[in-house]
């Protein structure tokens, strides 16, 4: 349904060109959930905004690539044609429920605006639809709540309203950019359940962007791991979590504290900081922080290569080298850093 081909989104700044998204390809099929995971600055939000064509141009420009939605290249559509897709066929839920609603308009007006922009219907009918949407996202007493202002809602409730607005026109794709990051865990659980039930009901495809590997494991079927503007590994949830084939994903998983760990051991240290995207390192972007890096990694930029049916990873190491490297690190940890209670 949606196909992103070798997309590059670069941003012109006073210090040079930031390669925020640098050659990303993936597809989304109807009704599936794709998780995009990465640290801050890895380009996940720029990628999401590129699909919606919401990055300000300039300074953002797209030197290469295509975003095909039902055969149309979104990068070449006119603003007016984009308006028909944005919010109507592809909708977005933002991270911060505190600042993405307009504080001076009532919830009902904001919901009806979304409905009336894309659908021709009398206001009374739009109001009925708004009530229906609020019921769908689990807001009690929806008729009364239409007249409430955003400040009268809690964070979790506002996120529900944002989801309702996104669903207003039955979009085919829902892009959720860190939808639960600002929420408490118990509220996060509620919102994730809600997104799942909405997907079951309407068959919406969801692109879920998050830095939280736990949220991704719970929600997604397909996972893209991003690092410094590129996809470094993609595959099914099982591939990513159990057949991890590249050092970044592996180190990231090991650096997480485990809630159900049997013993307490030292967290894995990924040395250093994510790279500067104006002057990315030569060769593999991850090599300065990679515990497995070889001389070759400093020169050659790895491409995504096939590991199994739908599993791709960008790493020069062969399967055997990676396995031996893991063993080496695990042994070193056992001798040195392991700390049991």
């Amino acid at each position: 349904m949606l196909e992103v081909k070798n997309l590059k989104a670069h941003i012109d700044t006073a210090d040079g060109v930031v390669k925020a998204v640098d050659g990303v390809s993936f597809t989304i099929k109807p009704g599936e959930t794709v998780g995009i995971v990465g640290e801050s600055g890895s380009g996940k939000s720029v990628l999401a905004h590129s699909i919606m064509q919401l990055n300000p141009k300039p300074p953002t420009f797209y030197p290469e690539g295509e975003i095909l939605f039902e055969g149309k290249n979104l990068l070449q559509l006119k603003e007016k044609e984009l308006q028909n897709i944005r919010g109507n066929e592809i909708a977005m839920v933002y991270q911060d429920p505190m600042s993405s609603l307009n504080p001076v308009f009532k919830i009902g007006d904001q919901l009806m605006e979304a409905i009336l922009t894309h659908q021709h219907m009398p206001k009374s009918k739009a109001k009925m639809r708004a009530i229906e949407l609020l019921t769908d996202v689990g807001i009690p007493d929806p008729e009364k709540r239409l007249n409430a202002y955003p400040h009268q809602f809690s964070g979790g409730m506002r996120q529900r309203v944002l989801i309702a607005i996104a669903l207003a026109c039955n979009p085919k794709i829902l892009i959720a950019d860190e939808p639960t990051t600002a929420l408490d865990v118990t509220i996060q659980a509620q919102i994730l359940e809600l997104m799942k039930s909405i997907q079951d009901k309407y068959g919406t495809a969801i692109v879920l962007i998050s830095h939280d590997l736990g949220v991704i494991a719970q929600m997604a079927e397909k996972v893209l791991v991003m690092y410094s503007g590129r996809i470094v590994e993609k595959g099914s949830v099982e591939d990513i979590f159990y057949h991890t084939s590249m050092p970044y994903t592996w180190s990231l998983l090991r650096s997480l504290p485990q809630i159900d760990a049997e013993s307490r051991h030292r967290l894995f240290n990924i040395e250093g900081q994510p790279p500067n995207l104006i002057h990315p390192p030569n060769g593999c972007n991850f090599h300065p922080r990679c515990p497995f890096a070889t001389e070759q990694c400093k020169m050659v930029d790895p491409e995504l290569t096939k590991r199994s049916a739908n599993h791709y990873a960008a790493c020069l190491l062969s399967e055997v080298e990676f396995k031996e490297g893991k063993k080496r690190i695990e042994n070193a940890e056992k001798e040195g850093g392991l700390k049991h209670v």
Partner: peptide, 27 residues
């Protein structure tokens, strides 16, 4: 118990095995 069960675990198999207590309402 509710807090513990609300945390997503970064492992899809263990994630599926767990039983959940989802709290209704807000603080």
């Amino acid at each position: 118990n509710a807090l513990l069960s609300a945390i997503p675990i970064p492992s899809s198999a263990r994630e599926k095995k767990r039983e959940r207590i989802v709290l209704t309402g807000e603080l």
